[in-house]
């Protein structure tokens, strides 16, 4: 006898409370939708956990929740974002990401078709990044208790012994490299917000950076002091954090910072600073001056680092100011973003 008589009606059906109850409906949702999309030998064994070998080196672990609104945006959706974000957090340690977990909190009434699309982009994002989603969880909550879908992913990876990237490692004289244009993700999301909607060609930069990082580590080795992906709060928040943690300041040149004209225009219109706007496929690397040229060249040779730039340097500063020579000719501080620029950007 077959375990399940009726197939999931992906086209017209939607999630109801029974899909989170632990019964057959849930098992069917998991096997029919998630296993299909993520397909790998670990999930196929159907355990509550997965066992795997890890190679030599130190383990890296991270976790992140995704509540982006809207769930689908130009350049991606909550699913691809949930993979990219966690992969990137691991990669910023110079590590090779290996396995992810994925936990779904779904509001009843959520359409199977949307869930399938999201799960498929997660699967695709994971395959592209070379990681496997090996365990997961599904909960369903009543209507109105979650805005459609929240996803939480955790990940593990391995970093070779001897490579220790950390935010307190920056030294005076180090160069500040960024991997490309700033603010694409935030502007793409904002352009689709109901009360903000505006026309733009900008798509989210959401992407897994682990391959780019591998090439950079190859080129720069221990000359790379640390890497961060400037997500919420943008480049400004990231550099201010590093300035505090490494007890120094930064001098940037505005002219060197790449921003797409469409992003610049949208920010102009909305009264935002592109340096505060979120990115999901960019990184900042603080690199020893003698290695900077080689790392920058490796970045530019990679498709995700084509627009990479050297935008400034670390300087001695007790006040931990991030200062910038404006392209107009004066100077100013690049401050933390204060308050909330826009909730639920990722």
């Amino acid at each position: 006898m077959k375990a399940y008589q009726r197939k999931l009606d992906i086209r017209n059906g939607c999630v109801d409370l029974s899909h989170g109850s632990g019964g057959r409906a849930m098992a069917q949702l998991i096997s029919g939708l998630f296993h299909e999309a993520f397909g790998n030998e670990w999930l196929a064994r159907g355990n509550d956990q997965s066992a795997f070998d890890v190679g030599a080196g130190r383990m890296v672990m991270t976790t992140d929740g995704y509540v982006v609104s809207p769930l689908f945006f130009p350049g991606g959706n909550i699913g691809s974002l949930a993979v990219h974000g966690t992969v990137n957090d691991i990669a910023m340690a110079g590590a090779r990401p290996l396995y992810l977990s994925a936990s779904f909190i779904i509001e009843e009434g959520f359409r199977f078709a949307d869930l399938k699309m999201i799960a498929e982009s997660m699967g695709e994002a994971a395959r592209t990044a070379g990681v496997h989603i090996v365990t997961g969880d599904t909960k369903v909550v009543e209507r109105g208790k979650a805005d459609g879908l929240f996803i939480s992913t955790a990940g593990v990876g391995v970093v070779p012994h001897g490579l220790d990237l950390s935010a307190e490692n920056a030294r005076v004289g180090d160069r500040v490299l960024i991997s490309g244009t700033l603010g694409d993700h935030g502007v793409a999301i904002m352009s689709k917000r109901q009360n903000l909607a505006f026309e733009t060609e900008i798509v989210s930069d959401s992407a897994a950076l682990n391959d780019l990082v591998a090439k950079m580590v190859e080129a720069g080795g221990r000359g790379i002091r640390l890497m961060r992906d400037p997500t919420r709060g943008g480049l400004a928040a990231t550099l201010n954090e590093i300035a505090h943690q490494s007890d120094l300041g930064f001098h940037l040149r505005e002219e060197a910072i790449p921003v797409k004209p469409g992003v610049a225009s949208a920010c102009e219109l909305l009264g935002l600073d592109p340096l505060h706007v979120a990115n999901e496929g960019k990184l900042v690397a603080i690199v020893a001056p003698e290695n900077a040229a080689a790392v920058l060249a490796a970045m530019r040779a990679h498709p995700l680092g084509r627009d990479a730039a050297d935008i400034g340097e670390a300087v001695a500063d007790d006040h931990h100011f991030v200062q910038m020579a404006t392209s107009f000719g004066g100077g100013r501080i690049v401050n933390w973003l204060s308050g909330e620029q826009l909730p639920r950007i990722c």
Partner: peptide
């Protein structure tokens, strides 16, 4: 004035 650093000029 502040954002473009006009005071410096």
């Amino acid at each position: 004035i502040s954002r473009y650093g006009l005071e410096d000029m």
